[in-house]
Computed example of a mutant assay.
Amino acid sequence: MECRVPGLLGAGAGTSGATGALWKLAESGRQLDANVVRLDPGTRVAPHIEPDLDVLLVVVAGDGTLDGGGVPQDLTEGAVVWLPHGSTRGITAGADGLAYLTVHRRRPGMQIRRRAD
Rank of each mutant, 00 (worst) to 15 (best):
R44Q: 13
L56F: 01
L32C: 06
A11E: 13
T88C: 10
A95C: 08
P51T: 14
Q31P: 13
K24P: 03
L53V: 14
V58M: 09
V71R: 15
A34Q: 05
Y100S: 03
A21Y: 08
L101I: 06
P108I: 06
W82C: 13
E2Q: 00
A21D: 12
P72M: 15
V80R: 04
D96R: 15
R114F: 09
L66R: 01
G62M: 09
D67S: 15
E27L: 12
R106K: 15
G14S: 06
W23F: 09
A21C: 07
T19Q: 03
V103G: 04
D74E: 14
G68A: 07
V60R: 08
A34D: 10
A34E: 07
G97H: 14
T43L: 12
L75K: 04
E50N: 14
A11S: 11
R89H: 03
G70Y: 04
L39D: 03
L25N: 01
E77H: 05
H85E: 05
E77C: 02
G7T: 12
V55L: 05
V58C: 05
A18P: 08
D67L: 15
V37I: 15
V80A: 02
L75T: 08
L101Q: 00
T19N: 02
I91F: 13
L9Y: 03
Q31K: 12
D40E: 15
P51D: 11
L53R: 15
L75I: 07
G62C: 12
A34C: 07
L56W: 07
G29R: 13
G68D: 08
P72N: 03
G70I: 01
R105P: 04
G70A: 11
G68E: 10
A46I: 14
L98W: 03
L53F: 04
I112G: 09
G64I: 02
D40M: 13
E27H: 12
L32N: 01
H48Q: 15
L75W: 04
V80I: 08
L53N: 08
L56S: 13
E77Y: 14
T102P: 02
T76G: 14
L75F: 11
H104A: 07
H85K: 14
A116H: 09
S16L: 11
L25Y: 11
V80P: 03
T19G: 09
D54W: 14
V55K: 00
I112P: 08
E2V: 01
D40W: 12
V55H: 07
V55G: 05
V58S: 05
N35M: 08
L57G: 05
D67N: 15
L25W: 11
V37K: 13
A95E: 03
V81N: 03
R30Q: 10
Q111T: 12
D74C: 00
G7E: 11
V55M: 01
R114T: 08
L75S: 12
D54V: 07
S16Q: 10
A95N: 06
S87H: 15
M1E: 10
Q73H: 09
V58G: 02
Q31M: 01
L8K: 05
A95V: 13
D54Y: 11
R107F: 00
L98H: 12
L39C: 07
T19S: 10
A26N: 04
G78P: 03
D52G: 11
V81F: 02
R107L: 00
A99R: 10
V5R: 06
R4H: 11
V71S: 06
L53E: 08
A116G: 10
R107P: 02
G10K: 12
L22F: 00
